[in-house]
Amino acid sequence: MPKVTAAPVPVRGSGSGLVAVVAGHELTAFVGAALESAGARPVDADLTAEVLVAADLAGVARHGVVRLLPYVQGLLGGTINGAARPEIVRRYGDVTVIDAHHGLGQPALAFAVDRAVEQARVRGACAVSVQHSRHVGITAWYAGRAARGGAFGVITTRAAGSAGGAGAWWEGAVTSQFLMCVDRTGVNAARRAPSVARVGEGAVRPRLTLPVPVLEELGRIAALVKVTPVRALDRRRPTRSEDP
């Protein structure tokens, strides 16, 4: 299996110059199936797929399904622990430390957000640090999760060994720190606040476009882990908004 040493982020409209139109729910199902087949727990595979596709729906392709190949390679090669469950290992007053045990980053950070919201409701504010994680994807997704729980979240991430370049970001463990704040006097109001829509949410079965080289890579991943590939509903030239 080839070693991934840099983030392979294709340029939209590159290669054939065409983009493929795919259904968001089909892409999410495919990504989840690929991750599960590679060794991730089903619930973690589904959540990770949701976050990756949300990035593409939001136009943040760098954190979207182009990340799937190194995830699958990491799971198959053992550098990502597919059986990991995030665990609270220390508490210092309003500060909580969570160990992701080298699992997928998305489930670990989602777990951390939920714990932070619970603590913030009780204590007014809290901070959470996630250690020994992996790439977590688009941070706006987690801020939205916190907002739906009635909390304001500020999230920062740091890649271990990031001074080594893009390869270090891909292969090094990621430590994520974030702060949740809820005013003690506004807790009840926050609980009654309307929910905040998820990134990409609102459209019924939304469609999105992927550069054809990305779709072709997803096809190779499907063959590698033996799952049904995602189908293209159409292939066409990108519009002005889709081609930088």
Rank of each mutant, 00 (worst) to 15 (best):
F178S: 00
T96S: 08
V95Q: 08
P194S: 05
G167Q: 02
K226N: 14
A6E: 14
Y92R: 15
Y92G: 10
G77P: 08
H132I: 00
L215Y: 06
I221L: 07
A120I: 02
A159R: 09
I155Q: 07
A23G: 13
H102Y: 13
G200L: 10
T139N: 08
D56E: 14
Q73N: 14
P86A: 10
P213N: 06
A163R: 13
V196S: 03
R67K: 06
L27H: 04
G39V: 07
D243L: 15
V21I: 12
L224A: 12
R198F: 11
D234L: 07
V9A: 11
M1D: 08
V113H: 09
V154D: 05
I98L: 14
L52C: 09
A163M: 10
D114I: 01
G82L: 05
L210Q: 06
H101S: 08
P213H: 07
Q106M: 14
S129G: 13
G13T: 07
G13P: 05
T79W: 15
E87M: 10
R220I: 00
D114C: 02
A6N: 08
R41Q: 14
S37K: 15
V154Q: 13
V204H: 12
A146S: 04
W141D: 14
R67C: 06
A166R: 13
V136G: 09
A203N: 07
Y142T: 00
G137E: 07
T175V: 10
S129C: 10
A84C: 06
I88N: 02
P42V: 04
A83D: 13
L208N: 04
E242G: 01
R205G: 05
V128E: 02
G13E: 06
V130E: 06
L233V: 04
R145Q: 15
T79Q: 12
T228P: 00
G137W: 09
D44Q: 11
R220D: 09
A193L: 10
L76Y: 03
L52Y: 10
A33E: 15
T48R: 00
L57C: 04
M180C: 15
E171P: 00
L76P: 04
R121F: 02
P244M: 05
L233E: 15
V136E: 12
R134W: 13
R121M: 06
E87Y: 02
A127D: 11
L208Y: 04
A100P: 08
A173R: 13
L18R: 15
A49H: 00
V19Y: 01
R236Y: 02
D243V: 14
R240K: 10
W169Q: 11
V227D: 02
G219V: 03
V95Y: 05
T175Q: 12
T48K: 00
L215F: 05
R121E: 11
G150V: 03
V130W: 04
A38F: 05
P8K: 10
S162P: 03
L233R: 07
P244N: 04
L224H: 11
L27W: 04
R240W: 09
I155E: 02
V72Y: 01
V182K: 08
R134N: 14
G17V: 04
R123N: 13
L35R: 08
L104A: 09
P86G: 10
